[in-house]
Design a binder for these strands. Sequence first.
DNA 1: GGATTGACGTGTC
DNA 2: AGACACGCCAATC
Length: 108
Amino acid sequence: MEQSFYDQVFELVRLIPKGRVSSYGAIAKSLGAGGSARMVGYAMSTAGAAHPAVPAHRVVNSSGLLSGKFHFKTPEMMQELLEAEGVLVKNDKVQNFKNLFWNPLMEL
DNA sequence: GGATTGACGTGTC
DNA sequence: AGACACGCCAATC
């Protein structure tokens, strides 16, 4: 059975190593979706009900901004989780983002 | 089954 | 540098 685009996103996001972050666009591209970066983010909103838990906090937009922090249980949780993994977050932005960026296409 | 929607991205003003 | 506009594409209503 064909898994929805969402499921593909979930799986890929789960592959993001701890202490690393990725962007919606990069994930979309690695799935061959290209311009459907929005779908990746949209999928994340359903990720809350996904099994196993999807580390959505490791996914940020191309600017390293925690765009979806408001979708978590609490807006601050996203930053807390990231910092707990060693990712420094300031002003809702991932510091050293370029360095912590995990590119699926490159790492896989 | 058409219209709406969106955790985005890039470009322009 | 910050704000605004348009484009993409699949799931949901």
